[in-house]
């Protein structure tokens, strides 16, 4: 359940990251090419941040699974 919700959030973020610049480009001029292409740098920093955070989320999910496993094992021993 939680896994699928997480996946949905990431799909939305990914979709936004891809479509946002082109959506803004349709308005006036190319948004990403304005202000000396500074938003390319913002995009690169954002991608690095998203990449590292998604790796941390992946690690946390594995850790949660392990914690549950350890708790179950403990319960079996005590019972």
């Amino acid at each position: 359940m939680k896994f699928f919700r997480m996946r949905k959030v990431f799909t939305i973020i990914l979709f936004m990251a891809i479509s946002l610049p082109s959506l803004m480009a349709q308005g006036n001029r190319d948004f990403m090419r304005e202000s000396g292409k500074i938003y390319v740098v913002v995009g690169v920093i954002g991608l690095i941040f998203l990449g590292i955070v998604s790796y941390l989320v992946y690690l946390e999910r594995k850790l949660t699974k392990l914690e549950h496993q350890l708790k179950d094992d403990k319960n079996e021993w005590t019972n």
Partner: peptide, 15 residues
Amino acid sequence: VIYESIRNTYFHVPM
């Protein structure tokens, strides 16, 4: 051509 995106040198290259 690259203008401000020269700053990517500090974020893309270190990867």
